[in-house]
Structures are given as structure tokens and as C-alpha cells.
Nucleic acid binder design. Sequence first.
DNA 1: TGTGAAATTGCTTGGTG
DNA 2: CACCAAGCAATTTCACA
Lengths: 148, 148
Amino acid sequence: MAVNLDDVDWAIIDQLQQEARISISELGRRVSLSASATTERVRQLEALGIITGYRAVIDLTKVGYQVLAVVRLKYPGNRHQPLHRLLAERREILECLRTTGDDCYTLKVAATSMAHLEALMDELAGFGSTTTSIVYSQTLPYRGPERP
Amino acid sequence: MAVNLDDVDWAIIDQLQQEARISISELGRRVSLSASATTERVRQLEALGIITGYRAVIDLTKVGYQVLAVVRLKYPGNRHQPLHRLLAERREILECLRTTGDDCYTLKVAATSMAHLEALMDELAGFGSTTTSIVYSQTLPYRGPERP
DNA sequence: TGTGAAATTGCTTGGTG
DNA sequence: CACCAAGCAATTTCACA
């Protein structure tokens, strides 16, 4: 499943992880490749599923989500469909990881207020026992991987 | 700190959260605006700090990080500099949130193998007691916020 | 795979409603 | 604020190494 990538591939990945909207020709300049060769490399990285997409990063506070929380959910049994349905509906749930350990799921949830968070927690509590931690600050905002 | 955004702003945000590399004219078509007006809107969203950047999303497994873990760190005392130094150095730490509750920090860590993860955990254990959960799957890969 | 040249398309800027 | 038009870049395609 893992793929062999050379220095140029990694240079491209690094650049696009930092500034995904630079032009192909600018990217080519930075990695010392012609525009057409750069296009081909990027196309390959996309086709191989190494680059899975490009996303704008939004400031949650500025768009109205003043509360960010990490929720751990202890989910008894193995009927996961209802939870998946909730994840699809409630767009306030930004991320959901299934993990080992006592808490089966770790979710990241954005809310506009504590009241809003409370309502979301009531929904989640229907699935199992929850542990909620409010996020003070993103000590390290998400960054992508570098060459192993 | 929060900002007032109209429908067009949100349409732009939605599009760029999904496909950050589309051209300005394509974006303009999708939100029914001319290219120059679209450029101006996007510039404003960036200048206001609502859009904080654009990032390529990389498949961790395919580039060699077979293990993803969520680590909760109980950090006694309040000397946070050493931890911040580690976060800057160890690029395997992809994210770090400071939270309320017993565990002061929640980290997301990528490793190439269990041995690699073990070494990372030894480093983190120097800061306090840790609780580690291996991620089975991203039930919901990260997505951005929608209009509140 | 990478390059270079030509045709197409997209971007930017200044002037206008 | 948004549109239009013109001049300038960037993108794509193709023949060639």
C-alpha cells in the first residue's frame, strides 16, 4: 500500500501542504521542474491517492464557533450505523476517530455556545458514556506529515 | 472577533473547503460572481483571517506512517516551554490541543511502526503520565465547519 | 520522465455603473 | 461592491529527446 516517493515528490508534497493554492508554474520553480513535468507529478500523486484533496483552513472562532471540544465516547455493543448517521447529519462533529482502549471513539466537536455544546452532548450521550474536554487553545494547529 | 458573512462568502468558504485548488474563475462560476469580484472576496476572507491557509491533504498510510495514535498527556506544573520545544522538533506530532480536565493536552501522533511509536511515547512520558490509543480508522476524516 | 513551443484559458488592473 | 475589457501569465497539449 505504501508508495516510493523521491525527493522531488516530497518537495511538492511539502509545498502543497503549506500553500495549496500556488500555481503549478510557481510550484515548478520551487522544486526546479518545468510546468508540464510538475503537472504530471501532481497528477500522479493525486491518482495514487497520496494527495487526497486540498482544503481551505477556516478560523472556527471567527465564523462563529467559539467552543471546541474533544469528546471521548464509550460505545457498548457493535451496532455502529446509528452513530454513523449522526456523524453524517451533525456537521458540528468535525472529526471522528475509532480507537483502541476503553473509549471507542474520539470526536472533535465545534459549537457556537455552551448551550449548543450541551445539546450536542445530549445527542451523543444517547450512544454511550461520554467524557468531554473543552479546548483552551490549539497549541499546535494541525500540520501534515514530513518525509519519514 | 466574529465576523459577519453573507451567503456568497459562505458559498466561497464551502467550495474552498472542499476543493481549495480550483481556479478563481471556476469558483466565480460556482458562486455566480465575476472573476474579479471573486478575487476581491477571497482576498478579504484571507485578510480578515477567516481563511488562514490552504493545505493539501496527504494519506498518512501511503507515505509511510502506518500507525496513528491519540495521546492524552497529564502535565503537572506549568512550565510549558519544554513541551513546546518538543512539538516544534518532533514533526511526528501532527496536532496538539490544550484542554480542560485531568489530561491537559491531547495530541495526534503519526508513527512508521510500533517501535517508532514506542520511542515517541518515551519522549512524551518525560513530561507527565500519558494515555495512548491507537487509531483503527478515521470514521470521519476531518471536515471544516459549515454556516452556524 | 522531462523539455520546449504554441494555442487556450485564466488572472489582473483600471475605468465605469 | 460588482462588472467589463485589455494586456499579461499560467495551463495544457504535443512533438521530441
